[in-house]
Design a protein around this nucleic acid. Structure first.
Lengths: 186, 186, 186, 186
DNA sequence: CATGAATGAGTGTTCATTCAT
DNA sequence: GATGAATGAACACTCATTCAT
């Protein structure tokens, strides 16, 4: 029953609770109770509460980093941008609880050292997607595209529709926005 | 010394701190300290911590309610939708700290009774802006328009540009999105 | 509406709430709310919370004091004792909320300066009722008689019976106890 | 230093303080100070303040429950009733601080969920002791017998006499009362 | 690997009381 | 006679964290 997977189970439960209730409102006691271990056990696997969050980040943002790295090697064409969005969309599906969490806990994360980390990443994504000297409105379009993809999923959760259809719709809008921004500039 | 403005001052400080640090991480002690009164004084003016938040909401969402009411009396034309966005943009400027707060504290607010209240309002805004039987992508466009307006301001804070210019750019993108969604349907 | 009877109304409400919830658990805020005045208003009429309680005592124990005074002037016969109990029974009916309060809040009153006052009175009642050199069991009988009268009313509250019948039954038992104690001694 | 007896020590100190000062007026800080631990330590052993009280109850009312159970299996004779009172008297000696506490904190306990529990138990004791269709006065006698036993000890505390003698005197009066109630009915 | 026991700092909240008006 | 505004001290309770075993 108690295999060496405890660390993983802590991460799973923590992510679920963090996403559902927020980071601040989720106590280690609660996590421990769900896992049916003591709080002290958590401290065997993680140095602090924040450490659990950091570990979630590291596991889940790797795909995002890889995508950014890939994007950097590509030419700045519209096709590349579209492909980046497509890949990003798939990344988001896989890591959706984390992104939901980040979307909804921005304030809580501000001083968590990770905040900057994530903002940085967003900025680098933005660099890949927008033209260097884009007009203000086009910059907004690119930001909006990213935001739309982040928020899209859970805002649409109430809506009755096939999840994959929703994802495609969100992706379509994002690609549209970036395309307009690209087109206008050239 | 003790003028009748204490209640107002509490609201001001609370909003500032809530927006900056998040609701959970802002303690009443902190608010009281900034105001140089005791915690108990806060309780003379507000029944609970949540009550302070609620009062902020009520003061700041009134313009939004009035806008929704006005929208309901208008014909569902593109011009109306654009005018709604224009007015909404102005509303948001006035209440921007509150909207920043809401944007960044969604998790914290989930069970705060107000969450639903606000979600409702967003849904009603959405009804004014989207066509009843719009395609999925067009619905996303309308949602994205609202989100863009909410988030736009503080996401752009780092960017060096005239605030009014930024607002106009955000508004332009939002109007674009809604126009596309409108156009497609007809 | 607001006549000079506020002091009286405070006493009435306070007694009711003290009896119902206990002294400690009844706050001045609560009393003030029931009366629809501010807490500060209570302080116009009474120096402290304890003062309210003291005033209730003074108003309601006067009959008891008079009874004790009368008893002192009478011969120590069984008839006198029985008459004392009869009169005491009537006194108790009139002041029943206060006695219920005292019965149920002994701990709370211990250090309230009044505790002693009341214990004293009980002792003086006891002197009137028991023989000076009574056997231990007879002393217990007399104490039991007083206790029975105090507690009788509210313990019997659930029981379906005419209140006056209950009072008579309680009185009968008390008289019996004291009579036995009297008889045994002589 | 930290042996496994902390829980027990908390109960001991709590009972002593509750009995002495009342439940409401005894703070967890005070209990913790006497034990020379932090308040938080109390919360490791008990979920709430009320929980401490409940645990005291459960430990101390078990003998009473056993007595009631035993009484149920016996014939409803006068001898049985007398034996019940005798056993009850011994039970009370062992748990006297708790009973003193209950006697003096009735108001405080009213809404403590345990109030009813205890009232129930008293009622079941009463059933064992009184005749089913007893006259009102005889019912009062039985109630009075129980009350006398409860209150007897601490009311007599001031009186200079051997504790065991006092207990016997109280028991004698209680048996007398129940006997009279029994006799009258048959 | 994990627990039992505990801590120190903090939380939101309530209270009796005061006092200028 | 009474209020509005505030205080200081306390309260029950929770939290992340530690450490010997």
């Amino acid at each position: 029953m108690a295999r060496g997977n405890t660390r993983q189970r802590i991460q799973d439960v923590a992510l679920e609770l963090f996403a559902e209730q927020g980071y601040e409102k989720t106590s280690l006691r609660e996590i421990a109770e769900v896992l049916d271990v003591t709080k002290a056990a958590l401290y065997y696997h993680f140095k602090t509460k924040e450490d659990i969050l950091i570990s979630l980040f590291q596991d889940l943002t790797r795909p995002m980093d890889e995508l950014i790295e890939w994007g950097r090697t590509q030419p700045h064409t519209l096709e590349t941008k579209q492909e980046i969005l497509r890949r990003y969309s798939e990344t988001l599906v896989a890591a959706s609880p984390l992104f939901r969490f980040m979307q909804e806990n921005q304030a809580a994360m501000r001083d968590l050292s990770i905040g900057e980390t994530f903002k940085d990443r967003m900025m680098r994504m933005l660099e890949l997607i927008k033209e260097p000297e884009a007009a203000l409105a086009d910059q907004v379009r690119c930001i909006s595209a990213l935001f739309t993809m982040h928020a899209g999923m859970f805002v649409l959760r109430d809506m009755e529709a096939d999840p994959e259809d929703k994802r495609q719709a969100v992706l379509e809008v994002a690609i549209d926005l970036v395309s307009q921004a690209h087109h206008v500039t050239h």
